[in-house]
C-alpha cells in the first residue's frame, strides 16, 4: 500500500515537473508578488520589516490558490481519476497523496525561496527563521484545504476566480497564526505558541480537506 502511494506521489511530481515547469509557476508568482511590495510602498527598511510577514504570507496564500486548479483538473479531464478510484486502496488516501504531491511540487519551493525574499524584505535573524518554520508548518494545510475547493470546482469553466472565493476565507487561520509567529520573533518573543496553533490548524486541514475533497470527487466519479 505504501509503495502504491509513493508511486502515486512520484507520478504526480513527474507530471507537475513535466508540464513546462508548471509547478514552478506558482513559486515565480510568489516571488514577483513579494517584489511588487517594496516597489509599491517604498524601500524604507523599517516599513518593509513591519509588513514583511504579512506580505510573504499573503503571497504564499495566493501562490497556493493559483496552483490549485491543476490539482485534480488534469486527472479529471483525461479520465485517470476513474483509474485512481479503482486502485486497491481507500480513495481518501489517493486524495491525500495527491494533496501531498501538490505541496511538494508547488509550495515546498515557495518555502525554500522564502528566506531570500524575507531578507529582501528586511527580515533578520530569529524572525527569518520563524518565517521559514511557519511556512514549512503552515503551507501543507493550504494544499489540503485548497483540495476541497479544487475538488468542488473540478470540471467547471472559469474555476480560477471561484476557487479563490471558496478557499481564501478558509486560509485565514493559517495567515493569522503564521504572521503572528513571525511578528512574535521580530519582537523578541517566543513564536512557539503561534507555531503550535498553526500546526494544529494544518493537522485539522489535513483531516477535513481529505474527507471533503474525497466526498466531492466521489460524486463526480459516480
Amino acid at each position: 500500500m505504501t509503495r502504491t502511494l509513493f508511486a502515486l506521489i512520484k507520478r504526480d511530481l513527474n507530471l507537475a515537473w513535466r508540464q513546462g515547469g508548471g509547478a514552478l509557476l506558482g513559486t515565480v508568482f510568489f516571488a514577483v508578488a513579494v517584489v511588487l511590495f517594496p516597489l509599491g510602498v517604498g524601500p524604507e527598511p523599517n516599513t518593509l520589516a513591519r509588513i514583511a510577514a504579512g506580505v510573504l504570507w499573503v503571497a504564499a496564500l495566493l501562490a497556493a490558490v493559483v496552483s490549485l486548479d491543476r490539482l485534480f483538473e488534469a486527472d479529471h479531464d483525461d479520465g485517470s481519476l476513474d483509474g485512481l478510484a479503482l486502485l486497491p486502496l481507500p480513495f481518501s488516501l489517493v486524495v491525500a497523496a495527491k494533496c501531498l504531491a501538490h505541496w511538494l511540487a508547488s509550495l515546498l519551493p515557495v518555502v525554500i525561496i522564502s528566506p531570500f525574499l524575507g531578507l529582501m524584505m528586511r527580515l533578520e535573524g530569529d524572525a527569518l527563521g520563524a518565517l521559514v518554520l511557519a511556512l514549512l508548518l503552515g503551507t501543507p494545510g493550504l494544499s489540503f484545504i485548497g483540495a476541497i475547493g479544487a475538488a468542488l470546482a473540478v470540471g467547471l469553466r472559469r474555476a480560477g476566480a471561484l476557487l479563490s472565493l471558496l478557499v481564501l476565507p478558509l486560509y485565514i487561520p493559517a495567515l493569522i497564526f503564521g504572521v503572528a509567529a513571525v511578528e512574535a520573533a521580530r519582537m523578541g518573543l517566543d513564536p512557539a505558541p503561534h507555531l503550535m496553533l498553526l500546526f494544529g490548524a494544518t493537522l485539522f486541514a489535513v483531516v477535513i480537506g481529505t474527507a471533503a475533497a474525497t466526498a466531492a470527487l466521489k460524486f463526480d466519479l459516480e
Binding site: L152, A180, A216
Partner: peptide, 27 residues
Amino acid sequence: AAARAGAILALVGFVNIPIIKFSVDWW
C-alpha cells in the same frame, strides 16, 4: 451535482467557523 457540492462546502465552512472565529479573536 450543485446540491452535493453546495452541501459539502456549507459543512466545511461550518466546521471551520469556530477555528476562523478563534483565530480572529487571537489576532
